Amino acid sequence: MNTRFAQILSALLHPLAMPTIIFAVLFYIGPESIHNLELFNGTSRVGMMSLKLGLLLLIFLQTFILPVFCIYALHRFKIIKDLKMETLADRRVPYLVTVAIYTFVAVFFTFKLRQFPEVSLILTSIAFSISAVSFISLFWKISAHAVGVSGTVGALAGIGAKFGIEQLFFPILIAILVAGYLMAARLHLNAHTPAQIIAGTALGLAVSLSVVILFI
Protein backbone atom coordinates (compact mmCIF):
# COMPACT_ATOMS: atom_id res chain seq x y z
CA MET A 1 0.00 0.00 0.00
CA ASN A 2 1.22 3.48 -0.87
CA THR A 3 2.16 5.50 2.22
CA ARG A 4 0.50 8.67 0.97
CA PHE A 5 -2.74 6.80 0.26
CA ALA A 6 -2.62 5.27 3.75
CA GLN A 7 -2.21 8.71 5.30
CA ILE A 8 -5.11 10.19 3.31
CA LEU A 9 -7.37 7.23 4.13
CA SER A 10 -6.54 7.53 7.84
CA ALA A 11 -7.38 11.25 7.78
CA LEU A 12 -10.63 10.91 5.81
CA LEU A 13 -11.87 8.03 7.93
CA HIS A 14 -10.95 9.55 11.28
CA PRO A 15 -12.95 8.01 14.16
CA LEU A 16 -14.67 11.35 14.77
CA ALA A 17 -16.15 11.22 11.26
CA MET A 18 -17.89 7.88 11.85
CA PRO A 19 -21.10 9.20 13.52
CA THR A 20 -21.75 11.51 10.57
CA ILE A 21 -21.16 8.67 8.11
CA ILE A 22 -23.48 6.29 10.01
CA PHE A 23 -26.34 8.77 10.15
CA ALA A 24 -25.88 9.97 6.58
CA VAL A 25 -26.35 6.38 5.42
CA LEU A 26 -29.31 5.73 7.71
CA PHE A 27 -31.08 9.03 7.03
CA TYR A 28 -30.81 8.90 3.24
CA ILE A 29 -30.55 5.18 2.37
CA GLY A 30 -32.33 3.43 5.25
CA PRO A 31 -34.61 6.07 6.81
CA GLU A 32 -37.14 3.42 7.88
CA SER A 33 -34.65 2.41 10.58
CA ILE A 34 -35.43 5.73 12.32
CA HIS A 35 -39.14 5.24 12.86
CA ASN A 36 -40.32 8.85 13.18
CA LEU A 37 -37.83 10.40 10.77
CA GLU A 38 -39.94 10.49 7.61
CA LEU A 39 -43.02 11.62 9.55
CA PHE A 40 -41.28 14.64 11.07
CA ASN A 41 -39.14 15.26 7.97
CA GLY A 42 -42.31 15.96 5.99
CA THR A 43 -43.71 18.42 8.52
CA SER A 44 -40.68 20.08 10.12
CA ARG A 45 -37.80 22.16 8.83
CA VAL A 46 -34.62 23.59 10.34
CA GLY A 47 -34.42 27.03 8.78
CA MET A 48 -34.10 26.44 5.03
CA MET A 49 -33.05 22.82 5.53
CA SER A 50 -35.06 19.62 5.78
CA LEU A 51 -35.17 17.96 9.19
CA LYS A 52 -32.85 15.19 7.94
CA LEU A 53 -30.19 17.63 6.81
CA GLY A 54 -30.58 19.73 9.94
CA LEU A 55 -30.12 16.71 12.21
CA LEU A 56 -27.14 15.50 10.20
CA LEU A 57 -25.50 18.92 10.35
CA LEU A 58 -26.10 19.08 14.12
CA ILE A 59 -24.51 15.65 14.57
CA PHE A 60 -21.56 16.70 12.41
CA LEU A 61 -21.01 19.90 14.39
CA GLN A 62 -21.31 18.17 17.77
CA THR A 63 -19.38 14.96 17.05
CA PHE A 64 -16.71 16.21 14.64
CA ILE A 65 -16.22 19.98 14.57
CA LEU A 66 -16.44 20.54 18.35
CA PRO A 67 -14.03 17.72 19.33
CA VAL A 68 -11.58 18.71 16.57
CA PHE A 69 -11.63 22.32 17.78
CA CYS A 70 -11.02 21.22 21.38
CA ILE A 71 -8.14 18.93 20.37
CA TYR A 72 -6.59 21.73 18.32
CA ALA A 73 -6.92 24.05 21.33
CA LEU A 74 -5.18 21.47 23.52
CA HIS A 75 -2.34 21.43 21.01
CA ARG A 76 -2.12 25.23 20.88
CA PHE A 77 -1.95 25.36 24.68
CA LYS A 78 0.78 22.70 24.53
CA ILE A 79 -1.21 20.21 26.57
CA ILE A 80 -0.55 17.71 23.79
CA LYS A 81 2.60 17.73 21.68
CA ASP A 82 1.38 16.22 18.42
CA LEU A 83 -2.01 16.47 16.70
CA LYS A 84 -1.53 12.92 15.40
CA MET A 85 -1.61 11.74 19.05
CA GLU A 86 0.67 8.78 18.36
CA THR A 87 1.74 8.35 21.99
CA LEU A 88 -0.37 7.32 24.98
CA ALA A 89 0.56 10.56 26.76
CA ASP A 90 -0.87 12.64 23.92
CA ARG A 91 -4.05 10.57 23.71
CA ARG A 92 -5.28 10.64 27.29
CA VAL A 93 -6.54 14.21 27.70
CA PRO A 94 -8.05 14.51 24.18
CA TYR A 95 -9.86 11.21 24.70
CA LEU A 96 -11.27 12.37 28.03
CA VAL A 97 -12.46 15.62 26.43
CA THR A 98 -14.03 13.67 23.57
CA VAL A 99 -15.78 11.34 26.02
CA ALA A 100 -17.28 14.37 27.80
CA ILE A 101 -18.48 15.86 24.50
CA TYR A 102 -19.99 12.63 23.21
CA THR A 103 -21.67 11.94 26.54
CA PHE A 104 -23.24 15.39 26.43
CA VAL A 105 -24.41 14.80 22.85
CA ALA A 106 -25.96 11.44 23.77
CA VAL A 107 -27.76 12.99 26.75
CA PHE A 108 -28.91 15.93 24.61
CA PHE A 109 -30.48 13.67 21.99
CA THR A 110 -31.96 11.39 24.65
CA PHE A 111 -33.82 14.15 26.50
CA LYS A 112 -34.26 16.94 23.93
CA LEU A 113 -35.01 14.93 20.77
CA ARG A 114 -37.06 12.06 22.16
CA GLN A 115 -38.82 11.61 18.82
CA PHE A 116 -35.75 9.75 17.53
CA PRO A 117 -34.74 7.19 20.19
CA GLU A 118 -32.73 5.18 17.65
CA VAL A 119 -30.45 8.17 17.10
CA SER A 120 -29.84 8.65 20.82
CA LEU A 121 -29.15 4.94 21.32
CA ILE A 122 -26.58 4.84 18.52
CA LEU A 123 -24.92 7.98 19.87
CA THR A 124 -24.90 6.44 23.35
CA SER A 125 -23.19 3.32 21.99
CA ILE A 126 -20.57 5.51 20.32
CA ALA A 127 -20.01 7.44 23.55
CA PHE A 128 -19.59 4.12 25.40
CA SER A 129 -17.07 2.89 22.81
CA ILE A 130 -15.04 6.09 23.14
CA SER A 131 -15.16 5.78 26.93
CA ALA A 132 -13.80 2.24 26.65
CA VAL A 133 -11.05 3.41 24.29
CA SER A 134 -10.20 6.23 26.67
CA PHE A 135 -9.93 3.85 29.63
CA ILE A 136 -7.87 1.27 27.74
CA SER A 137 -5.58 4.04 26.47
CA LEU A 138 -4.52 4.75 30.03
CA PHE A 139 -2.52 1.52 29.77
CA TRP A 140 -2.40 0.35 26.14
CA LYS A 141 -2.65 1.86 22.65
CA ILE A 142 -5.81 0.31 21.20
CA SER A 143 -6.73 1.37 17.65
CA ALA A 144 -9.42 4.06 17.74
CA HIS A 145 -9.66 3.88 13.93
CA ALA A 146 -10.50 0.17 14.16
CA VAL A 147 -13.08 0.81 16.89
CA GLY A 148 -14.73 3.56 14.85
CA VAL A 149 -14.91 1.81 11.48
CA SER A 150 -15.91 -1.59 12.91
CA GLY A 151 -18.56 0.14 15.02
CA THR A 152 -19.90 1.67 11.82
CA VAL A 153 -19.99 -1.73 10.12
CA GLY A 154 -21.66 -3.28 13.16
CA ALA A 155 -24.32 -0.59 13.45
CA LEU A 156 -25.24 -0.69 9.76
CA ALA A 157 -25.13 -4.49 9.54
CA GLY A 158 -27.14 -4.94 12.73
CA ILE A 159 -29.82 -2.46 11.69
CA GLY A 160 -29.96 -3.82 8.13
CA ALA A 161 -30.42 -7.38 9.39
CA LYS A 162 -32.83 -6.55 12.22
CA PHE A 163 -35.19 -4.47 10.10
CA GLY A 164 -34.63 -6.28 6.81
CA ILE A 165 -33.54 -3.11 4.99
CA GLU A 166 -32.28 -4.37 1.63
CA GLN A 167 -31.08 -0.90 0.59
CA LEU A 168 -28.35 -1.12 3.21
CA PHE A 169 -26.73 -4.19 1.64
CA PHE A 170 -24.34 -2.32 -0.65
CA PRO A 171 -23.46 0.39 1.92
CA ILE A 172 -22.63 -2.42 4.39
CA LEU A 173 -20.51 -4.20 1.79
CA ILE A 174 -18.67 -0.97 0.98
CA ALA A 175 -18.18 -0.28 4.70
CA ILE A 176 -16.61 -3.73 5.19
CA LEU A 177 -14.23 -3.22 2.24
CA VAL A 178 -13.29 0.26 3.43
CA ALA A 179 -12.72 -1.07 6.95
CA GLY A 180 -10.29 -3.62 5.58
CA TYR A 181 -8.35 -0.98 3.67
CA LEU A 182 -8.29 1.34 6.68
CA MET A 183 -6.93 -1.34 8.99
CA ALA A 184 -4.30 -2.24 6.39
CA ALA A 185 -3.40 1.45 6.17
CA ARG A 186 -2.93 1.73 9.94
CA LEU A 187 -0.66 -1.32 9.89
CA HIS A 188 1.27 0.05 6.89
CA LEU A 189 1.89 3.32 8.74
CA ASN A 190 3.08 1.38 11.81
CA ALA A 191 0.46 3.25 13.81
CA HIS A 192 -0.68 0.02 15.46
CA THR A 193 0.19 -3.61 15.90
CA PRO A 194 -2.12 -6.40 14.65
CA ALA A 195 -3.20 -7.03 18.25
CA GLN A 196 -4.26 -3.40 18.67
CA ILE A 197 -6.22 -3.54 15.42
CA ILE A 198 -7.93 -6.82 16.37
CA ALA A 199 -8.82 -5.50 19.83
CA GLY A 200 -10.27 -2.32 18.35
CA THR A 201 -12.31 -4.27 15.82
CA ALA A 202 -13.69 -6.59 18.49
CA LEU A 203 -14.64 -3.68 20.75
CA GLY A 204 -16.35 -1.69 17.99
CA LEU A 205 -18.35 -4.67 16.73
CA ALA A 206 -19.31 -5.91 20.20
CA VAL A 207 -20.68 -2.55 21.38
CA SER A 208 -22.50 -1.57 18.18
CA LEU A 209 -24.09 -4.98 17.57
CA SER A 210 -25.10 -5.36 21.22
CA VAL A 211 -26.90 -2.01 21.27
CA VAL A 212 -28.69 -2.65 17.96
CA ILE A 213 -29.77 -6.19 18.89
CA LEU A 214 -30.78 -5.48 22.49
CA PHE A 215 -32.17 -1.94 22.45
CA ILE A 216 -33.13 -0.70 18.96
Results as ranks from 00 to 15, higher is better:
residue 68 V to I: 15
residue 68 V to E: 11
residue 69 F to H: 00
residue 69 F to A: 15
residue 69 F to T: 14
residue 69 F to N: 01
residue 69 F to P: 00
residue 70 C to N: 02
residue 70 C to G: 00
residue 70 C to V: 14
residue 70 C to W: 12
residue 70 C to S: 12
residue 70 C to K: 02
residue 70 C to P: 01
residue 70 C to E: 03
residue 71 I to A: 08
residue 72 Y to K: 06
residue 73 A to T: 13
residue 73 A to R: 10
residue 73 A to F: 12
residue 74 L to S: 02
residue 74 L to F: 05
residue 74 L to E: 02
residue 74 L to K: 01
residue 75 H to G: 14
residue 75 H to Q: 07
residue 75 H to L: 07
residue 75 H to Y: 15
residue 75 H to S: 10
residue 76 R to S: 09
residue 76 R to D: 05
residue 76 R to F: 10
residue 77 F to I: 06
residue 77 F to N: 10
residue 77 F to P: 02
residue 77 F to D: 04
residue 78 K to A: 11
residue 79 I to K: 14
residue 79 I to V: 15
residue 79 I to E: 11
residue 79 I to T: 09
residue 80 I to W: 03
residue 80 I to H: 02
residue 81 K to S: 15
residue 81 K to I: 00
residue 81 K to E: 14
residue 81 K to L: 10
residue 81 K to V: 07
residue 81 K to Y: 08
residue 81 K to T: 11
residue 82 D to N: 15
residue 82 D to T: 11
residue 82 D to V: 08
residue 82 D to R: 12
residue 82 D to I: 10
residue 83 L to T: 08
residue 83 L to W: 03
residue 83 L to M: 14
residue 84 K to V: 00
residue 84 K to C: 02
residue 84 K to N: 14
residue 84 K to T: 11
residue 84 K to F: 02
residue 85 M to K: 03
residue 85 M to A: 08
residue 86 E to P: 02
residue 86 E to C: 05
residue 86 E to G: 12
residue 86 E to V: 14
residue 87 T to S: 14
residue 87 T to D: 07
residue 88 L to M: 03
residue 88 L to G: 00
residue 89 A to S: 13
residue 89 A to N: 11
residue 89 A to Q: 14
residue 89 A to Y: 08
residue 89 A to E: 13
residue 89 A to L: 08
residue 90 D to S: 12
residue 90 D to K: 06
residue 90 D to L: 07
residue 90 D to N: 12
residue 91 R to F: 08
residue 91 R to T: 10
residue 91 R to G: 07
residue 92 R to V: 14
residue 92 R to T: 13
residue 92 R to K: 15
residue 93 V to N: 02
residue 93 V to Q: 03
residue 93 V to G: 01
residue 93 V to K: 05
residue 93 V to T: 06
residue 93 V to F: 05
residue 93 V to Y: 01
residue 94 P to Y: 04
residue 94 P to G: 08
residue 94 P to A: 09
residue 94 P to E: 06
residue 94 P to W: 05
residue 94 P to R: 03
residue 95 Y to A: 14
residue 95 Y to F: 15
residue 95 Y to K: 09
residue 95 Y to T: 03
residue 96 L to G: 04
residue 96 L to S: 08
residue 96 L to N: 07
residue 96 L to K: 10
residue 96 L to Q: 11
residue 96 L to W: 09
residue 96 L to E: 01
residue 97 V to M: 04
residue 97 V to C: 05
residue 97 V to T: 03
residue 97 V to R: 00
residue 97 V to E: 01
residue 97 V to D: 04
residue 98 T to I: 15
residue 98 T to D: 11
residue 98 T to N: 13
residue 99 V to L: 11
residue 99 V to A: 11
residue 99 V to Y: 05
residue 100 A to C: 13
residue 100 A to P: 04
residue 100 A to I: 13
residue 100 A to T: 12
residue 101 I to L: 12
residue 101 I to H: 05
residue 101 I to G: 01
residue 102 Y to H: 14
residue 102 Y to D: 13
residue 102 Y to M: 15
residue 103 T to I: 09
residue 103 T to P: 01
residue 103 T to E: 06
residue 103 T to V: 12
residue 104 F to K: 00
residue 104 F to L: 09
residue 105 V to D: 05
residue 105 V to Y: 06
